[in-house]
Design a protein around this nucleic acid. Structure first.
Lengths: 128, 128
DNA sequence: ATAGGTGCAAACTATTTGCGAGGTC
DNA sequence: GACCTCGCAAATAGTTTGCACCTAT
């Protein structure tokens, strides 16, 4: 809608990198030197809410630790943030068919299933 | 080695939750009321370095955004943090065989392959 | 005219660091 | 005794918010 919103979105859409808010800020600054970092954040939030954008990692506001060193996967509740373990054998084996163009040495992988836990699932159903 | 380190580790190992540093702190506080949050963080770092502990989400120090709304996966470099996209069809279809005991409504999933990108791969080889 | 967006500065939250005191081997 | 760890407090990084002004419809 506004010029700055447009430029921010173009910057995000026009890259295959996965920029941080700070990086967006620096890029947009070249077009709109007067822009403020707060505007970047506010717009990112708007885009996220609108579903035009996704954050790459699972959305914990803080670090989450795991002393279970065996390979396993996670169920992450999008609402309350609770993480449940999922034993590796609950999921069919995973392997990359071909690593397109990128040179990359894979050491491990981890699947995050995003969804709603029993509790939140109910609350959402009730409140909607 | 020290008492506090022992208690912190026991707390981490003795839960199937995925606690935040803050939560660890509160738990350990009940045994060692004089402990400081900085000690928790220092020990977590020690454990992470030693490989006794893992952080659940991919380790960006900051939010990473993605305007590509199609389902796809990520290659995350453990060294430099760069994220590469991997088209969904590069990976065999994923599905949960059975959701063990947990009630959970899955809405989506995402695979993160952790490893080393071409650049960092070389540097590691050279420096080691 | 009105709703919503912007920029600034201040507030917050999560995490890290420096340093002197104290515990461990 | 040397070295590492602890606890405190201050510093830093990332993100959010309040507010007054401005702009598009």
């Amino acid at each position: 809608m506004t010029h700055q919103r447009w430029v921010i979105y173009q910057t995000l859409a026009g890259t295959d990198q996965h920029p941080s808010p700070e990086e967006i800020f620096e890029q947009v600054c070249q077009e709109i030197p007067s822009i403020s970092l707060a505007t970047i954040y506010k717009n990112i939030k708007t885009f996220l809410d609108a579903g035009l954008l996704r954050a790459v990692s699972t959305p914990h506001q803080t670090m989450r630790l795991d002393a279970n060193l065996e390979s396993h996967h996670h169920l992450v509740c999008a609402s309350c943030g609770t993480i449940f373990d999922l034993p590796e054998d609950s999921v069919a084996p995973i392997h990359i068919k071909k690593v397109s163009s990128v040179e990359f040495r894979v050491e491990g992988h981890n699947v995050n299933f995003l969804g709603y836990c029993g509790q939140c699932s109910m609350q959402v159903s009730v409140s909607s």
